[in-house]
């Protein structure tokens, strides 16, 4: 067993463990913090795949911005166990079934993939190669997704604006 394998196992255990903790915690602030740890473990996996750009962007966008906003909202609402409303049994079942079917679809999609990426090989993830691929082969989808983001932003502003 070499160092890379040990790191891989460590990061996987960390990611899965903190993800499970995230779901099972009663206190929402603790859940958010466990989710942050999960993001870090996933970023570690990206670094092992030599995709430094993806790793850092994952940290900046998810851990650094989105989760801070989540934490912000959770802290401001001051959610705790006493304030949590009793959930409907039916709703819980519906949640489990829809979550399970999503998992099934994801698993089926992942089983079909070919060309597994080996740890420690390839330099797809370096900024230069990523930029070339993104702006040559995938320009149109890239630009369309940026328009999508813009419309989402405008929508958020419209919703949050007070009606006069």
């Amino acid at each position: 067993m070499n160092l890379t394998t040990i790191l891989f196992i460590f990061l996987s255990v960390l990611a899965l463990g903190s993800a499970i903790m995230m779901v099972t915690r009663k206190n929402p602030v603790h859940s958010v913090l466990y989710l942050v740890i999960t993001f870090f473990a996933i970023s570690g996996h990206y670094v092992l795949l030599n995709a430094q750009f993806l790793a850092i962007v994952n940290i900046i966008v998810y851990a650094g911005a989105i989760m801070v906003l989540f934490l912000f909202v959770v802290m401001m609402m001051n959610l705790n166990i006493e304030a949590e409303p009793q959930k409907n049994r039916l709703l819980q079942f519906a949640g489990v079934i829809s979550g399970g079917s999503l998992l099934l679809v994801l698993l089926a999609a992942l089983m079909k993939t070919k060309g597994t990426v080996m740890i420690g090989e390839g330099d797809y993830g370096l900024v230069k190669n990523l930029g070339k691929v993104l702006f040559n082969d995938y320009v149109v989808p890239f630009e369309i997704s940026s328009v999508l983001f813009l419309s989402a932003m405008v929508g958020a502003v419209v919703i949050s604006k007070k009606e006069k």
Partner: peptide, 24 residues
């Protein structure tokens, strides 16, 4: 680091966790 500026930018953006966790 190949993406040095982004690394610094990312770590700086994490600095707020110390303050938020402590304050909560």
């Amino acid at each position: 680091v190949d993406v040095g500026i982004l690394y610094i930018f990312g770590v700086v953006s994490l600095g707020v966790y110390g303050i938020m966790i402590g304050s909560w």
